[in-house]
Amino acid sequence: MIVTQQAFRAALLDPAAPVPEGLTDPAGRPAGRRFDVYRNNVVASLAAALETGFPAVRALVGPDRFRALAIAHARARPPRTPLMMHAGADLPAFLEGAGLGSALADVARLELAVRESYHAADAAPIDPAALGRIPPDRLENLRLGVAPALRLVPSAHALVSRRQAALEGSAQGAEDRPETALVTRRGFDPVVTALAPSEGVFVTALARGDPLGAAVALAAAHDPVFIPAAALSALLAGGAITSLETESVP
């Protein structure tokens, strides 16, 4: 009796499936609980990776319910990569599919973004004073190079305060509102900052290479009283600007 890896895998991820014939104990009896060791190792290690990777989501849904969700996720959607740093890349969609709502899924997206930022390539930030030395007539067409560790997570919810409250174990006090989470990393530890949606539009435009003037215009279309100063300060403080390009657009 040949046991294919296809059959092994199918039984591994389905606790109700019979243990494949051909797997035995030393006496030649069916492997039984011995096969369950592999079942448990796989599910427990994948669930543990999600527990480590999504501490705020875990706190928000409760440890027991999160464990059950993580085990269900491991069985339904085992990772597509051996890099556990990417574990749970599809957890936000899984949470939405499980009916847990977009607010929780957005917190999961933010936790993924923080982890991506942690592992992103290093890049030296500009001297913040350099921005102040750009002649005013060159600002309109100024383009910014941004750090690989920069991430943005737009949300219809107050995901930054929601995550923070979950990590601190405190009740979420602030009322819900749309927010874009900005993740920056100066050094090794990512920092999360809450941006207004218009600021999120602005930084998104800058990060894809739009000139400053165009990025401000996009944000202003979103919010007529938009002012870029706070978002630029957050980028500078987070070491997220790596170059300034003042050449005019051809």
Binding site: Q6, R9, N41, V42, L46, R80, M84
Partner: peptide, 8 residues
């Protein structure tokens, strides 16, 4: 197996 990584 089949691109699924089973972490064991």
């Amino acid at each position: 197996h089949d691109a699924a990584f089973l972490n064991d």
